[in-house]
């Protein structure tokens, strides 16, 4: 059986997982730059300094999206979302902007 990677499914899944992880604060791991430590899951370990979630969010989105891009057939999406695929990353970026609004208040 020949495995086929679907860039459409990868983009859709990555955007959805990335936004979900951001929205519900669910990174796969946190990185603590002060001591160069990692902790699995979203729980912040006290006494380790500031925690960074970006690596954990990207890693989980990329991993899950890669698996889905191989196992989910993309014909349905390729046909029905023809020429509207671009709306998904735009929506994801708008949601990101909305979630970051507290920094500008």
């Amino acid at each position: 059986m020949r495995l086929r990677f679907s860039p459409i499914i990868f983009m859709l899944a990555y955007c959805l997982i990335y936004i979900a992880a951001l929205l519900w604060d669910l990174p796969a791991f946190l990185y603590y730059p002060l001591h160069g430590q990692l902790s699995w899951g979203p729980e912040v370990v006290k006494g380790q300094g500031p925690a960074m979630a970006w690596y954990g969010i990207m890693a989980e989105a990329a991993l899950i999206a890669s698996i889905l891009a191989i196992i989910v057939p993309d014909r349905w999406f390729a046909n029905r979302m023809q020429n509207v695929l671009w709306t998904v990353p735009v929506a994801a970026m708008l949601i990101c902007t909305f979630l970051m609004r507290t920094f500008f208040g």
């Binding site: 990868f10 983009m11 990555y14 951001l22 970006w54 990101c96 500008f104």
Partner: peptide
């Protein structure tokens, strides 16, 4: 300078989302 932190947060997330566009962009 909360606005500066916010600008960087957007830079970080836009950059991260841009990565998933690359395979589609090539295709």
């Amino acid at each position: 300078l909360g606005w500066a932190v916010g600008l960087f947060e957007l830079k970080e997330h836009f950059g991260g989302l841009g990565l998933c566009l690359l395979p589609l962009y090539v295709w």
